[in-house]
Simulated assay, not measured.
Amino acid sequence: MQLDATDLKILDYLQTDGRISNQELADKVFLSPSSCLRRVRMLEEAGVIHHYCAVIDTEKVGLEVDAFVQVTMRRDVEQWHENFSQALQQWPEVTGSYIITGDANYLLRVRARNLKHYSSFVLERLYKTAGVLDIRSNIVLQTLKDTQQIDTALLEE
């Protein structure tokens, strides 16, 4: 899909405030409300806008531990990737999972109430998953930047 400058402005505003009214968005991007709504729907239907969500302050809801975990798998276990992928879908502690390059197979972002909860997750679920060979945890001490927003300047040529 080819995005023009107006589409990029719409995306910028929606990333900042997904609850902005169509009228306010239309005013900001200099479109009629019907044209603006048509463009937003086109962006949604094309999958450019995947979904809308609220961003939760994890500390305020009691999730004290944020960790990045590298998981290395044993390749001699049959269907290790499929089994691991299926298992991690059942773990609410895992808020992000990625197949990566390097020594490990996966990088997980794990959120937990406290260190005891995190430890229980690692020992009782992660290590007990068939095929897991090694786990390397990195506990976040301080977050400097954490966003899902895409700077639309990256999309311009």
Score class of each variant (00 low, 15 high):
D17W: 00
L8H: 08
G18A: 03
E45C: 07
L25Q: 01
I10N: 09
V29P: 07
S34H: 13
L3I: 01
M42V: 09
E24T: 12
T16W: 12
A26L: 12
S32F: 08
S21T: 07
L14D: 09
L31G: 03
D27G: 12
A5M: 13
L11M: 05
E24G: 06
I10Q: 00
K9G: 10
D17Q: 05
R19M: 11
C36T: 11
L31R: 05
D17G: 07
R38G: 07
V40L: 04
L14K: 02
L8W: 11
I20G: 05
R39W: 08
S32N: 04
S32T: 07
A26K: 13
M42H: 12
R19E: 10
L25F: 01
L3K: 03
Q23A: 11
L8N: 05
C36V: 12
L8T: 05
L11P: 10
A46C: 00
L3M: 09
L11N: 01
R38L: 08
I10M: 12
D7S: 04
L3V: 01
D12Q: 15
D17V: 02
C36M: 11
D12E: 15
Y13H: 15
G18M: 01
R41F: 08
A46K: 12
K9P: 09
E44P: 02
Q23E: 00
L43Q: 04
L8R: 03
L3W: 06
I10W: 10
V40I: 14
C36Q: 08
L8A: 01
A5F: 07
C36H: 11
F30N: 08
S34K: 14
E45V: 11
V29S: 00
S21P: 05
K9V: 05
A26M: 11
Q23F: 06
S21N: 05
A26S: 15
L31K: 03
E45K: 15
A26H: 13
E44F: 01
S21A: 04
K28V: 06
A46R: 12
K28T: 03
R38S: 14
L3F: 08
E45F: 09
A46L: 01
K9N: 11
N22K: 04
R38H: 12
S21L: 08
T16M: 14
T16Y: 13
L3Q: 08
S35C: 02
S32E: 06
D4F: 13
L31P: 03
I10E: 07
Q15G: 13
D27H: 12
S34E: 15
L11C: 08
D7F: 02
T6Y: 02
F30M: 12
S32M: 00
S35P: 03
R38Q: 14
A46Y: 10
C36G: 06
Q15S: 10
E45N: 15
V40A: 03
I20M: 00
E45W: 09
I10F: 13
S32L: 07
N22T: 15
R38C: 06
S21Q: 10
D7K: 03
G18I: 00
L31F: 10
L31Q: 05
D7V: 01
E24W: 04
D7H: 02
L11E: 02
E44N: 01
G47P: 03
D4C: 14
K28R: 15
D7I: 06
L25M: 04
